[in-house]
Simulated scan of single mutants.
Amino acid sequence: MGNLIFLSGQAAIDQIGGVVGPGDIDAQIDQAMANIERALNAVGSGVDRIFKITVYLTDMNNFESVIKMRERYFDKPWPADTTVGVSALALPELMVELDVIATRP
């Protein structure tokens, strides 16, 4: 597992602990992905090295935004993904949470 990176619980939380984009699924996805990118870069990896992503959505009506996320952040072939509908996340304002597995060069 030396070349694998596991990130869990990535949500729309900014660097000072505030929730970004309450009520805006796309803003929340963008913040969660920015957090993922920052964490992966810190260990010498990057978003392009993600091969598995799990998406937790509090409203499955927002699934279209997950499809758009794939197109914005990843190249084909897209990472394997699982989307799960959940009743709530850690904070009531959160609409999405991401877990990823990536490799390190």
Rank of each mutant, 00 (worst) to 15 (best):
G44P: 12
S45L: 11
V47Y: 03
V47K: 14
V47W: 04
D48K: 13
D48L: 10
D48T: 15
D48G: 14
D48F: 11
R49M: 11
R49G: 01
I50R: 01
I50A: 01
I50M: 04
I50E: 01
F51P: 12
K52V: 14
K52R: 06
K52W: 12
K52L: 12
K52N: 08
I53P: 06
I53K: 11
I53H: 01
I53T: 10
T54L: 08
T54A: 15
V55C: 14
Y56D: 13
Y56T: 08
Y56E: 14
Y56G: 04
L57G: 06
L57S: 07
L57R: 09
T58N: 01
T58E: 02
T58Q: 05
T58F: 06
T58L: 10
T58K: 09
T58R: 09
D59Y: 12
D59L: 03
D59S: 14
M60K: 07
M60H: 08
M60C: 09
M60W: 14
M60A: 11
N61P: 01
N61T: 10
N62W: 08
N62I: 10
F63L: 13
F63E: 00
F63Y: 05
F63N: 07
E64N: 00
S65T: 03
S65Y: 06
V66G: 04
I67L: 11
I67D: 00
K68W: 06
K68Q: 14
M69Q: 01
M69C: 10
R70K: 15
R70D: 01
R70Q: 02
R70I: 09
R70P: 01
R70W: 02
E71I: 11
R72V: 13
R72L: 07
R72I: 08
R72K: 14
Y73H: 05
Y73Q: 10
Y73P: 02
Y73D: 05
F74I: 13
D75L: 05
D75S: 13
P77R: 05
W78P: 04
W78T: 08
P79V: 07
P79Y: 02
P79R: 06
A80L: 02
A80S: 00
A80P: 00
A80G: 04
A80R: 15
D81L: 04
T82V: 13
T82P: 02
T83H: 05
T83I: 06
T83M: 04
V84Y: 00
V84G: 00
V84C: 02
G85C: 12
G85L: 08
V86S: 00
V86A: 14
S87A: 11
S87D: 15
S87Q: 13
A88P: 04
A88H: 13
L89T: 10
L89F: 07
L89E: 12
L89Y: 14
A90H: 05
A90E: 15
A90D: 11
A90K: 05
L91M: 15
L91G: 07
L91T: 10
